[in-house]
C-alpha cells in the first residue's frame, strides 16, 4: 500500500525538519561567532604565526564550496583519524567553521573602522588593553558590523540546506522525502521554499531591529 496523498502528519514532519534546521543554524551561529571573534582578536593583537594561520584558514574556507567542506569532514575525517561522526556532528563542525571564517572578516573590518584617535585617547586616560577592547572597541564595532552580520546570517540559514546531502533530516531532506512519496514536486518544494523564505525574513527583521537599537545613540535627538 502506498500513501501518495498528503496527510496531516506531513505538517508535523515539516515542522520537525524546520526545527532541526533552526537548531543547527543557531548552534553553528553561536559557535562560529565565538570562533570568528577569537580569530579577529588574534589578528588585532598581531599574535605571531597564529595570525597568518588564521588568515589562511579563513581564506580557504571562504573560497571553497560548503558541500566539499561537508564531505571532507563527514567522509574524510573519520577515515583519516579513525573516529565516528554522526551526520549532525559533521554538519555542526562544518557550519561552525564556515560561519567563523565569515564572522572573522566582518569583525576585522569592523575593528578597523574605529579611528585610531579614539584608542589613543583611551590609552592616554590609562585604560587597560582589555577595558579598551570591551568598552571602546566592542560597542562601536558591533554597531558597525550588525548590518553585514545580518546579511551573513540570512546566507548561512540557506547554507544549512546543504546538510541534507549527508543525511541530516532537516527541512530540505523532509521536502525530499515528501517529494518522493507524493510525487507532487511543485507543491512540496514551494512549501519548503516558503518556510525558508519566512525564516530568512524573520532573521533579517530581527537584525534590522537590533541595528536600529544599537545605532539609537547616533540619532539626532533635537536641541
Amino acid at each position: 500500500m502506498r500513501y501518495t496523498e498528503f496527510t496531516p502528519y506531513d505538517i508535523v514532519l515539516l515542522l520537525q525538519g524546520l526545527s532541526v534546521t533552526l537548531w543547527l543554524f543557531v548552534a553553528s551561529t553561536l559557535i562560529g561567532g565565538a570562533l570568528g571573534l577569537g580569530f579577529a582578536v588574534v589578528r588585532y593583537y598581531r599574535v605571531l604565526l597564529l595570525r597568518q594561520l588564521v588568515h589562511g584558514l579563513a581564506e580557504l574556507l571562504k573560497n571553497s564550496p560548503v558541500l566539499v567542506q561537508l564531505f571532507l569532514v563527514f567522509f574524510g575525517l573519520p577515515v583519516l583519524m579513525k573516529i565516528n561522526l554522526t551526520p549532525s556532528q559533521a554538519a555542526l563542525i562544518t557550519l561552525s567553521g564556515n560561519t567563523a571564517a565569515f564572522v572573522y572578516v566582518i569583525a576585522v573590518s569592523a575593528i578597523e573602522a574605529i579611528s585610531r584617535d579614539q584608542i589613543e585617547a583611551a590609552r592616554v586616560f590609562g585604560l587597560t588593553r582589555w577595558t579598551i577592547l570591551r568598552r571602546v572597541i566592542a560597542p562601536q564595532a558591533l554597531a558597525f558590523a550588525i548590518g553585514p552580520l545580518t546579511g551573513l546570517l540570512v546566507n548561512q540559514l540557506q547554507v544549512t540546506s546543504l546538510i541534507s546531502v549527508i543525511g541530516v533530516i532537516d527541512l530540505t531532506k523532509v521536502g525530499h522525502i515528501l517529494n518522493l512519496r507524493t510525487l507532487k514536486p511543485f507543491i512540496v518544494w514551494a512549501v519548503v521554499g516558503a518556510l525558508y523564505y519566512l525564516t530568512a525574513k524573520a532573521v533579517a527583521y530581527a537584525g534590522s531591529r537590533l541595528e536600529r537599537r544599537l545605532r539609537a545613540h547616533t540619532d539626532w535627538k533635537g536641541v
Binding site: 540570512v154 540557506q158 540546506s161 546543504l162 530540505t172 511543485f186 518544494w189 519548503v192 521554499g193 525574513k201
Partner: peptide
C-alpha cells in the same frame, strides 16, 4: 527577494523534479 531568500538546493530540486511534471 524570492530567489535570494530561498536556498539554491531547494530551487534546484523545484526545477529538477518539477520540469518533467
Amino acid at each position: 527577494d524570492v530567489f535570494r531568500n530561498i536556498p539554491f538546493i531547494v530551487q534546484l530540486f523545484f526545477f529538477y523534479f518539477g520540469l518533467p511534471e
